[in-house]
Design a protein around this nucleic acid. Structure first.
Length: 648
DNA sequence: CATTGACACATG
DNA sequence: CATGTGCG
């Protein structure tokens, strides 16, 4: 009686499996680097992070801020250039690096090294201006840095990736980085290039569970640097070759060479992903002018590590077979999220510096010392990463922050208000800019941070009302109020840092109409909230709809804002003369300001969130204003991969 | 080399 | 809500 079950050939190992395992079987300490790939794997659509054919890339822009300035100024590719922030250098392009210039050099040192260095200061807001600019003279006492231009260019790059790579997931990870999941299109291309794989052959022993036939030879030329199975001698020779091989049972045994490691279908997938990545990077380079470096591997964390293999303007590929020797000598501080306190805690606890140093720590040990969620670290060390590349698409950033460090501490309230106004101007600009693309964006809260002297910074926040026009005045008024609560108005304050931010930025729901929804011609309309909900929220402020069939009250000269808060039961009623304002914009601003002047954010928020809606777009939608909780999304993995664990 | 400045997000 | 952590 044969023991193997027909549906589990991967466990028993069939004839079809081939002998591809001989290299990796010696590497038990790492995850399965050469899983058997079956027809089912190839033909499935939604294997997610467990897909054995997964291909992920991390692409980042080289010296991004400097590159942005080069594009903006149209300077020659080879011009050495640095970007300045006050007296500090925050970006150095590669031509300038040839002169030995690095970040955190002082401006004058850099100039000494390279007299013809092009020096550009980042754009700044000047007090009183509503837009950032590049000025001849900047002063940290009166200006505030703006990174807006870089954000915009960053968005262009991400947009181009999406355009060039249909079917891919694109996750903008930071201002100069994006993760891309190529798995879906790569799978399609494999099937298109090797149509015989569309179904298992008639004599396949296990049907779709049969392993794929051996892959064709792979031409890597022109697809990037393939990290060798045996990593080249690393420059920080913390580990010698002898020590590496000492882990082997047979002392004299040579490490396998690349040519000895049989290619896999995953390698095919990587090579195809590399082709696509090359195309997209070329497009970015030629149409936007930015050079990028990319890493391609089986998951996000490895892709990120791989991207740094060749810079600038490089592309590198990490085959599964190369993972162990690439990872083992790697200082684990280079790994995402292990660069800070967390990494230091590990280094200290186990007297370790490299990934290899930590491989002997058992999961149990780690978890008792560092908590359940350190399984995340345990897996990372073995080249495993289940995190998904998720396209945040249009919901973009959830917060927006403007911050200012004060070289000279603030000593009185007036100065505080002045800076709040500058920060508010920036937030207004950026939010309205974002609304340009997605008109319904709404920041749910406004937060003010302040740091006194060397104390750690404290914060105060409040709900932010949904207004169609978010103006400097509204934000600043709200900011001032928070300031009063946070630092007070007494003299002798010593504020060294102020930050103002929007958080919880999201799309307003169908029901959340703009402030215009509160306007209606006075005349005979009652302030009954039931009627309010019937009101056509599209009506223009200050433009009584005489064309409307049933409402002929075109003699209206007033507008009324009226609502009963369902929570606190109070009724707010505001009566404004149209003639007081020169245009509708001004009216809207005034209304919003009045609501806020009511000094009850809770009220203002309810006003917007709970009553106005009631025009469900979906017939099935309930009248509740409450958002359908996203948390009901069931987590598939019971295993926590939270990044931080409870220590101290 | 350690540090700074601007930012976003997770955690309790 | 308030605070802490990571990153370029």
């Amino acid at each position: 009686m044969e023991t193997s079950l027909p549906d589990s050939p991967t466990k028993t190992g069939s004839l079809w499996k081939g002998k591809a395992k001989d290299v990796t079987s010696a590497q038990d300490e790492f995850g399965d680097l050469n899983p058997i790939i079956t027809y089912r794997h190839l033909l499935s659509q939604n294997l997610g992070v467990r897909d054995p054919l997964r291909v992920v890339a991390l692409c980042d822009s080289d010296a991004f801020y400097a590159a942005c300035e080069m594009v903006r100024l149209g300077v020659d590719k080879d011009t050495p250039l640095v970007v300045l922030q006050w007296d500090s250098i925050i970006a150095v392009n590669y031509p300038a690096r040839k002169y030995g210039i690095s970040r955190m050099d002082k401006k004058m040192d850099a100039l000494k090294r390279c007299p013809h260095l092009k020096i550009v200061h980042v754009a700044t807001y000047r007090e009183g201006e509503t837009e950032p600019g590049y000025w001849d003279e900047v002063d940290t006492n009166t200006h505030k840095v703006s990174l807006d231009y870089y954000r915009r260019e960053s968005l262009k790059i991400a947009a181009m990736f999406r355009e060039m790579l249909p079917g891919c997931e694109v996750e903008k990870a930071s201002i100069d980085e994006a993760f891309i999941d190529f798995t879906k299109p790569v799978r399609e291309i494999i099937l298109q290039r090797y149509p015989h794989l569309a179904q298992p052959p008639p004599d396949a022993p296990f049907g779709v569970e049969t392993a794929l036939p051996p892959p064709p030879p792979i031409v890597w030329d022109g697809k990037g640097a393939v990290i060798p199975v045996n990593s080249p001698p690393s420059e920080d020779s913390s580990i010698t070759d002898g020590q590496i091989s000492s882990s082997s049972d047979e002392p004299g045994r040579a490490e396998p060479l690349d040519k000895d490691v049989v290619s896999t279908w995953h390698d095919v997938a990587l090579s195809i992903g590399a082709e696509l990545m090359t195309n997209a990077r070329d497009a970015v380079h030629t149409t936007l002018g930015y050079s990028t470096s990319a890493g391609i591997a089986r998951n996000k964390f490895l892709a990120k590590l791989t991207a740094s293999y060749r810079k600038p303007n490089g592309q590198s590929i990490l085959r599964n077979a190369s993972i162990p020797n690439y990872l083992r000598p790697m200082p684990f501080q280079k790994i995402r999220f292990l660069g800070g306190k967390l990494g230091r805690a590990f280094a200290e606890e186990y007297d370790a510096a490299t990934v290899g140093d930590l491989l002997s720590i058992t999961l149990d040990e780690m978890q008792t010392k560092f908590g359940e969620s350190s399984i995340w670290v345990y897996e990372i060390l073995r080249g495993l990463d289940r995190s998904e590349v998720k396209d945040k698409g249009s919901t973009l950033n959830k917060s927006m922050l403007a911050s200012k460090n004060l070289p000279k501490p603030i000593t009185n309230v007036q100065e505080g208000y002045r800076w709040i106004r500058v920060l508010a101007a920036e937030l207004a600009l950026r939010l309205n800019d974002a609304r340009n693309m997605s008109p319904n964006l709404w920041p749910k809260t406004l937060v003010l941070h302040a740091r006194k002297g060397y104390e750690s910074s404290r914060s105060k926040q409040a709900p932010f009302p949904y207004t169609r026009e978010v103006t400097v005045d509204i934000i600043a008024a709200a900011g001032d109020k928070l300031w009063k609560e946070l630092v007070g108005t007494s003299t002798q304050m010593n504020v060294t840092n102020v930050q103002l931010s929007f958080t919880g930025i999201d799309f307003a729901e169908a029901g959340q109409k703009t402030i215009e929804g509160f306007f209606k011609p006075t005349s005979k309309r009652q302030r009954d909230s039931a009627e309010l909900t019937d009101f056509n929220t599209q009506a223009e402020v200050g433009q009584p709809e005489s064309s409307a069939g049933d409402a002929k009250e075109d003699s209206a000269t007033d507008i009324i804002v009226s609502h009963t808060c369902t929570r606190c039961k109070k009724t707010l009623s505001l009566n404004l003369e149209l003639s007081r304002f020169k245009d509708s914009e001004e009216q809207k601003t005034a209304i919003a300001a009045l609501i806020m002047e009511h000094d009850d954010w809770h009220f203002a928020q309810d006003l917007v969130r709970e009553e106005i809606p009631i025009r469900p777009i979906q017939p099935s939608a309930s009248t509740s204003h409450k958002k359908t909780p996203k948390t009901k999304k069931r987590r598939k993995d019971p295993v926590g991969i939270e990044r931080f664990f409870d220590r101290k």
